[in-house]
Simulated assay, not measured.
Amino acid sequence: MGCTSSTVPLAAGDFSYLRDTEKTLNRMLARQARIAGAHYVDTYKTTIGHDMCRPDGQRWIEPLVTALPVAPAHPNAQGERAMAAAVDRALSCVLHRW
């Protein structure tokens, strides 16, 4: 898997490494949240299919090289809205349990 291009100049093997590293970090965050008695919201799954390799308008994560005034390899406005919606759904579930 990969989408090496001028905007995403990574080797094919880098994609799986970065994906697996992010999943490892997310598991650690979820574990630490559990230990602290907090609720962890997985926003990674929300963004699947909207990665930096997708065309503008479909991607929620910006590519590494961009002409736009955005943060490379970070969520764009669509990605932020999707992650906020995931957090909102999680909060709604927690609040309905009370």
Rank of each mutant, 00 (worst) to 15 (best):
D88T: 15
A12S: 10
A90C: 09
V41K: 01
A11N: 09
M83H: 05
T66M: 02
L91T: 07
H39K: 09
W60R: 04
Y44P: 08
S5Y: 02
R19C: 05
R19P: 01
R81T: 07
I48E: 04
L10P: 05
I61S: 05
A86N: 05
K45F: 00
V8E: 02
R34E: 15
H74G: 14
T46M: 06
L91H: 05
I61N: 02
A30D: 15
A33Q: 11
C93S: 08
V41N: 06
R59P: 14
E62G: 05
C93D: 14
G2S: 13
R97F: 05
L95P: 01
H74A: 15
T46G: 06
E80Q: 15
A86Y: 02
A73F: 05
T24M: 03
E62C: 10
S5A: 11
P9I: 03
A73E: 04
I35E: 14
G79C: 10
T47K: 02
Q58L: 13
M1A: 14
G79T: 05
R81F: 02
T4N: 07
P72Y: 01
I48A: 07
A84P: 07
L68K: 11
P72W: 00
W98T: 11
V70G: 10
R54D: 15
A36G: 10
A36M: 11
A11Y: 04
P72K: 02
I35R: 09
F15D: 08
L91Q: 09
R54G: 10
M83K: 10
D14F: 01
